[in-house]
Computed example of a mutant assay.
Amino acid sequence: MTDPAAPTVTAILLAGSRPVPDPLAQAAGVAAKPLVPVAGIAMIDYPARALVAHPAIARVLILTQSPDLFTGTPATAWLADHPKVAFETSGAGIASSLLALMDRADLPFPLLLTTADHVLLDSAMLDQFIAQATGADIAVAMVERDTLLARYPASRRTWLKFRDGWWSGANIFWFGSAKARPVIALWQDVEQDRKKGWKILAAFGPFALIGAALRLLTLRGGIARIGRRFGLVARLVAMDKAEACIDADKAEDVALIESILASRA
């Protein structure tokens, strides 16, 4: 369980739309990807309910270009009435919107960021992430390939190769203090290439790129080294649950998620 001394957390749930039409939303006939039904329920409903139910999370900010898409849809209208939930209109990009939120006096740190397509997010994942991220200025959740393939050998992810294995992002981030701002500003510069691992590594400097290419770095050590470059504590949270890196990005992901939800039921 989460340490009772853990700080009160503000969760930011990304529910925006990209400039190009989303194939899942088009196939489902809905206005935005977070409204795509997964096992008959809008996908945003799953992470939103996990977040509002967690005792360490004080409030949930849903960041989207169009709050009315959710408040005006019966399946998600409960979000507008929930005492923990508020909507924020996003700007041109995730990083710029996050930097604007950090400037607000009514949003104390720490901030936990996740996405509306993180359908399998649950209390155990949040327990682990919050417990291990607490004390860091910035933390990122990742899943090692063996952890995923041991449970779901057919699942396909985007992997980054390091000395300590192959890693995939789990779409959970921690910003523990204002020291995280320079990293987010860098994220803003490479935001359009966030799926292209080498471009992101190169933005952190040649040592990170060469170290990854030659497998000189462990991911944990590399993240800590990047943190020291920016004068902050940066931390990897290696998630225990394989499901932490399965997001609803493609039709095959939705099919896998629905089978996992059915097995849980």
Rank of each mutant, 00 (worst) to 15 (best):
R229E: 09
W174Y: 09
P182N: 09
K195D: 11
K196N: 12
E191S: 07
G165L: 05
I200R: 12
V183L: 15
G227H: 01
W167P: 12
G231L: 05
T218N: 06
K199Y: 14
I172T: 11
K161M: 10
A180L: 05
W187V: 05
G227E: 00
P153Y: 02
A202V: 03
W166K: 10
V183M: 14
G169E: 14
F207N: 03
G165C: 05
R235I: 05
D193Q: 13
A203P: 08
R194Y: 12
K179N: 02
R215K: 14
A178L: 14
A208N: 07
A185S: 06
A170P: 15
I210Y: 10
W198G: 10
R228M: 07
L219A: 06
A213V: 00
K161E: 15
E191Q: 06
A213Q: 11
F162E: 13
G165M: 04
F173K: 11
K179V: 05
A154D: 12
R215N: 13
S177P: 04
G176K: 09
A213F: 13
R225M: 15
R163N: 13
R215E: 11
Q188L: 14
D193M: 13
A185Y: 02
L217F: 09
A208K: 09
A178Q: 10
L201N: 02
V233T: 01
V233N: 03
P153K: 02
T218C: 10
Q192I: 08
A170L: 14
W166T: 08
A150Q: 04
L216K: 09
S168R: 01
E191A: 05
R235G: 04
L186G: 09
D189R: 15
P182Y: 08
F175I: 06
L209H: 00
A208V: 10
G165T: 07
E191L: 06
L232V: 01
I226R: 01
L219F: 09
W187E: 09
F207C: 04
R194G: 04
D164H: 04
F162R: 14
N171S: 15
W187N: 13
R235C: 03
A203S: 09
R215C: 10
L214F: 11
L214G: 08
L160C: 13
A185T: 07
G211I: 02
P182D: 04
I223Y: 02
Q192L: 13
W159V: 08
V190E: 03
T158P: 15
V233L: 01
I200M: 10
K179C: 07
R220G: 12
L209I: 01
P206M: 00
